[in-house]
Every structure is written in structure tokens, then in C-alpha cells.
């Protein structure tokens, strides 16, 4: 039978209740559709015994923490926001290799969650892990593509037990559940955003300055593609963002030489994130994006559009 979100909700609430029992749990919420759905299911199952924690890593999009707090508030989920941005940047200093970065982020997340759990006496950590997260993290005869922070990025020894009600679901199915749960559209239709946040959109070493550049570029890509989609110029992409390359190239600005960073614009069509193709964006829309990025962000001198499908690429750059 095709996936039935109503039936799923009932079964899932029962199985969370059976797994966690009378113990307390915390849930890691990023504001994306996966963790928000998991939070609502866990709240239904556990009532007062669940606490929702949002970690501000300093690698979130523009205004994200506030937006998420208010959208989830309207869905009846009270968020506890923990600002851990300083310790995330400190832990990531000097790390260039994507897998190393992902492992550091996974470890940092767990540290914050364990601190929160200890304060409150929680024995379980509920996560919005979905199928592609554990599939791509590898296991058995399946090769690792990347360590998703909530699976392959987890430290080997963890005090809390994991509860992952969405493990068998893909993004389009999670959205069906979100609509069935009557979550606001800014959550149910929210484009995917990776757990490690902007960290995987900064190729190479992460600094607060680079995070600021890519945050600005992502906001421009989102604004322009959302407006092009609203006016019917493009099919709304499944995921769309900017990434920063560590490569600088030469340019000329106001009759002077410039030597600045390169930004990659990526927009893809997909259903479940397992396969993807690059969105066919008209040149005038791309032109507007490149003009805005290079005019508004001084340290970017060149903008590229990524025309690679998945496979052979992945959606994010790291």
C-alpha cells in the first residue's frame, strides 16, 4: 500500500510510548520538517516528559533561530534554545576535511544534548533521523557517502538511548505526516537544511567570517528563487542554496583589480534526496542572483551555477 500518514502517526505514537515508557526524553530540533514532525509525535506520546532543544550552532541561516521558535510555537511545541555558537566555532577551528568536520559537529551536538539531559534527568534522545541519513552514513556492505551528524557523526559511547521514529521515511513522506499533523506550511514545506548547517556549505576550514559570507549568499539565493517561483518563472526547486569555495579568483571592480572568493549556487529537483537533478534556471534569474551576490557581498568575486546531478554529485558540497 502507498504510505498512509494517518496510520503512521498512530503507530508511531504508540511505539515511542512503548520504547520510552515513563522515562524522560529530550528531542533535538533543528526547525526542519523531520525534527519538527518527530517533536510533535514525541510530544503526543510523552506529554510532559519531553523537552525540545534547539542548538544555535552559529551555522544557521539568517534569522533561523527566531523563525523556528515562532513557527514551532504556533504548532504548540515549546523550544529551549541553547546558544553554543562559540564552542562550535572553537571546535571546528583548523578542520578542513569534510568527514572530520561532520564528526566534530556530531560530537558537539551530543555534548550539548547530554548537558541538557543531565540537567533534567532525561534517559532518551529523540531524533528526526530519516532513511537517507542512515543509508548514506554506511553500514554492512553499504559504503559510507557521508557521516550524517545524527548517525555516523554520533560518538561511539553515548549515555542516552536513541529513539528515531522516522527511520524508514523519506522527505516526501515526512511532509505528508507534517500536513496530516496540521503543521504550518513554513515547516511542512520548508526546504531541507542539513543538520551540520552552513558548515557543509563552506568548503574547507570554517570561520565566523566565512559563515557570514555564505549566510548572506544563501539568503539572496532563497529570495531570488522563491520570487522567481512565485511569479511562475521556474519550477520551485526541492533544495536551493549557496556554498562558498576556498578558491579566490581575479576580477576587476571600479577599474581596480580584485581577488575574491567564489560562490557556488545550487538548486535541485528531487522527491526524496536519493537522486537529484540540477534545476533548469533561466539565465536572467541566474544573472540577478550573481549580480546581487557580487554587489552585496564584497568578498565574493565570482559566482558559479552547479550543473551536476546526483549521482555523481550529492546535493550539498560536503
Amino acid at each position: 500500500m502507498p504510505f498512509d500518514p494517518g496510520e503512521f502517526i498512530g503507530k508511531s505514537v504508540d511505539s515511542i510510548r512503548a520504547a520510552v515508557g515513563k522515562k524522560k526524553a529530550i528531542i533535538a530540533v533543528s526547525g526542519g520538517v523531520d525534527s519538527s514532525v518527530a517533536a510533535v509525535l514525541a510530544s503526543r506520546a510523552l506529554g510532559r516528559n519531553i523537552r525540545c532543544v534547539f542548538v544555535d550552532t552559529g551555522l544557521m541561516r539568517k534569522g533561523e533561530a527566531l523563525q523556528v521558535k515562532s513557527a514551532l510555537g504556533r504548532a504548540g511545541v515549546q523550544l529551549r534554545v541553547v546558544d553554543a555558537s562559540k564552542s562550535f566555532f572553537a571546535a571546528l577551528r583548523g578542520a578542513e576535511e569534510p568527514e572530520k568536520k561532520r564528526k566534530i559537529i556530531g560530537k558537539m551536538f551530543i555534548q550539548v544534548f547530554e548537558e541538557e539531559a543531565n540537567k533534567w534527568g532525561a534517559a532518551y534522545l529523540v531524533q528526526g533521523t530519516i532513511a537517507p541519513d542512515w543509508i548514506e552514513s554506511g553500514g554492512g556492505s553499504r559504503k559510507k557517502i557521508k557521516s550524517h551528524h545524527n548517525v555516523g557523526g554520533l560518538p561511539k559511547e553515548m549515555r542516552m538511548k536513541l529513539c528515531e521514529p522516522l527511520r524508514d521515511l523519506y522527505k516526501h513522506e515526512v511532509r505528508m505526516v507534517a500536513r496530516e499533523l496540521k503543521l504550518p506550511p513554513e515547516i511542512s514545506e520548508r526546504q531541507p537544511f542539513p543538520g551540520p548547517g552552513l558548515a557543509v556549505r563552506i568548503v574547507g576550514e570554517i570561520t565566523p567570517e566565512k559563515a557570514e559570507i555564505v549566510r548572506g549568499a544563501c539568503a539572496i539565493v532563497e529570495e531570488e528563487l522563491e520570487s522567481a517561483s512565485a511569479s511562475g518563472k521556474i519550477e520551485h526547486p526541492w533544495q536551493y542554496f549557496a556554498a562558498l569555495l576556498p578558491t579566490k579568483t581575479v576580477g576587476v571592480r571600479g577599474d581596480e583589480r580584485s581577488y575574491q572568493y567564489t560562490v557556488v549556487v545550487r538548486a535541485v529537483r528531487s522527491l526524496d534526496g536519493m537522486t537529484a537533478n540540477f534545476s533548469h534556471i533561466p539565465p536572467e534569474v541566474l544573472q540577478k542572483i550573481s549580480t546581487r551576490i557580487t554587489n552585496e557581498i564584497r568578498s565574493v568575486g565570482r559566482v558559479l551555477y552547479d550543473i551536476t546531478n546526483k549521482p555523481p554529485a550529492t546535493v550539498e558540497l560536503e
Binding site: 532513511a131 556492505s141 553499504r142 523519506y170
Partner: peptide
């Protein structure tokens, strides 16, 4: 039969659908 594909679980989903 899982021989390590990224899409083994997607086959499971397609069969269910």
C-alpha cells in the same frame, strides 16, 4: 537481497507503494 546499494531501502519503498 541487499548487496550494499544506496537504493536497497528505496526498492523496499517502491515494492510497498
Amino acid at each position: 537481497v541487499d548487496m550494499g546499494s544506496q537504493y536497497t531501502h528505496v526498492i523496499w519503498r517502491a515494492v510497498r507503494d
